[in-house]
């Protein structure tokens, strides 16, 4: 099923914004967003600069996936969250290092570099950013 993503060049091309939290900041309306892109999704301005986003944030909402897409088969259950970083920029990512029964809205989280999916049995492994709870 996942032939559409089984591509080495594709993973190579996407590595910059998937491996690091680099967003865009609009010089016109001051909005920030992840990932970087050349036009502001809010005001349409093309005057956008890259910005290193904070690595810490808060869990705004989450879900526990019990019925996954085929590329994530047998990995269920796992947590996907909507995270608001310290500067207000939001990102969707997996929440890791926490039991599905213990995850809660509002917890503080930090970015970590983790494995996401494999391109079949013989393909490359795709990595990216997940978030884990910050222990006090």
């Amino acid at each position: 099923m996942n032939t559409f993503i089984n591509s080495v060049p594709r993973s190579w091309r996407e590595r910059k914004y998937k491996y690091r939290l680099i967003g865009g900041i609009c010089k016109k309306c001051n909005a920030t967003f992840y990932p970087y892109r050349g036009s502001c999704p809010y005001c349409g301005s093309d005057d956008i600069e890259e910005v290193n986003l904070p690595k810490k944030g808060r869990l705004i909402s989450y879900t526990i996936i019990y019925s996954p897409p085929s590329e994530f088969r047998l990995k269920q259950p796992y947590i996907v969250g909507l995270i608001e970083l310290e500067d207000g920029t939001r990102i969707i990512a997996q929440i890791t290092d926490v039991d599905v029964n213990e995850v809660k809205d509002g917890i503080e989280v930090e970015a970590v570099f983790r494995r996401y999916r494999e391109q079949g049995a013989d393909g490359i492994i795709e990595y990216g950013i997940k978030f884990r709870p910050i222990s006090d």
Partner: peptide, 21 residues
Amino acid sequence: QEYVAFTGSSFVGLNALIYRR
């Protein structure tokens, strides 16, 4: 596909994020 499907979220999962919020 690049920044949301990549995370393993299902389409149901995205609506679940809305639901909980």
